[in-house]
Nucleic acid binder design. Sequence first.
DNA 1: TTGTGAGTGTAACAATTGTTACACTTTAAA
DNA 2: TTTAAAGTGTAACAATTGTTACACTCACAA
Lengths: 220, 220
Amino acid sequence: MTKNSNPEWTGFEHLKEDKLFPADLKYSIKNYPKNNLILRQGDLCDALYILMSGSVKTEMITENGNLLGIEIINAPRPLAPAFLFSGNNRFPVDVTTLEDVEILKIPKKEVVRLMTTQPDFMQQFLTHNANRTQFLTNRLQLLSIKTIKGKIAHFLLEQTNEHGSTFTLNRNQTELADFFGVARPSLARSLSEMIQDGIIRIDKKEYTVLNKKKLRDFLV
Amino acid sequence: MTKNSNPEWTGFEHLKEDKLFPADLKYSIKNYPKNNLILRQGDLCDALYILMSGSVKTEMITENGNLLGIEIINAPRPLAPAFLFSGNNRFPVDVTTLEDVEILKIPKKEVVRLMTTQPDFMQQFLTHNANRTQFLTNRLQLLSIKTIKGKIAHFLLEQTNEHGSTFTLNRNQTELADFFGVARPSLARSLSEMIQDGIIRIDKKEYTVLNKKKLRDFLV
DNA sequence: TTGTGAGTGTAACAATTGTTACACTTTAAA
DNA sequence: TTTAAAGTGTAACAATTGTTACACTCACAA
């Protein structure tokens, strides 16, 4: 198994390492090749899926057929665990593999058992779901900003708050446009205007904020 | 206590009625008058707040200062319980009372204790949070539809799927516009065009879908 | 009854974004 | 190194939405 690198979800590994994992736990492991649509928006979600190795991307298809990119998930992490307990337990997104992946599948009943017998597991589950909710709330906030420059500003300020004023973006412009839910040329236009105005600088994938004050003005 | 009318959250009441509620549980009860901002977006969230009676509305203020109406909450229901366990545990929304309300506050530590000792409570907590996540996902989907008529179509189809082709809307046009995240006159324009085209009919607060097929065309 | 405010309909115009198209640059594979 | 594909910059124009303003209806309280 990949060494855990994601502080969000350490519970499962922890259980295994400490031999707290029940010997009679029912589960299955599946492998999928690269670039494969493995879970579809609307699919029944009656088991906990944990991405053990590799990476996937999730994307939501809006009813008008557009893509609204959501996020890239690296192992180890569970996939949409919250929906396991929702009323109509269906997947909210499409899940596509980015590399070869290994996925652990634990039936819902077994998850319930784990939850009640392993406090550590439960804590991790709760924290993870809480963070997911927060992620969605952030996403909601970003989408609710109506202007493209506003979205850019929000995004850049978020990225640079902790890492100084320069950071490396691991998305291309098309993906960023999808993330914002706008058209690619529109995003490019806004970006180049902001460069022209000396607010930001872009060198390949390296983004630099030159004027945080002006950036914040787009959020007024 | 108000008789439970919300199937989403019955756990707490259940505990009380069955005397499964620990006698030494630490909690406090607070009362607030009508039209009061009681929890602010960004406030620290270190306890579980349960709305015991009355109703509140939650709304998110985007960084550009616009309101993005979220929802109206009727007792009994917890307020943003997911955030209790999130990384930076802060409230994602403003909470304003719509009537006099009574709020039960249980410290996080006590919630953890309840969770591990009361399987019923835990199940309710999980299900509730799952449904919240689903709600947010729906909201995200609505916001990601770019055209106003698309949003209207999505909304109307959702409302009429279960209740026939007529339903009563308990929001005015301004609130609906906020819900969609668009300007009020723009919404009015789109609505009147759809009326003109014989797709819908509006009589005061009564909305009727006359042509579901044409409505679906807006989602292509 | 009358007046006041909330809610709605609508028009003219401004601003923003989307669409389409194409040239250019960079990347990575052959 | 060459070549194809992916990614980016940008322009003209179309389409949609926002802004502002004002008239009108309706409910309800004085």
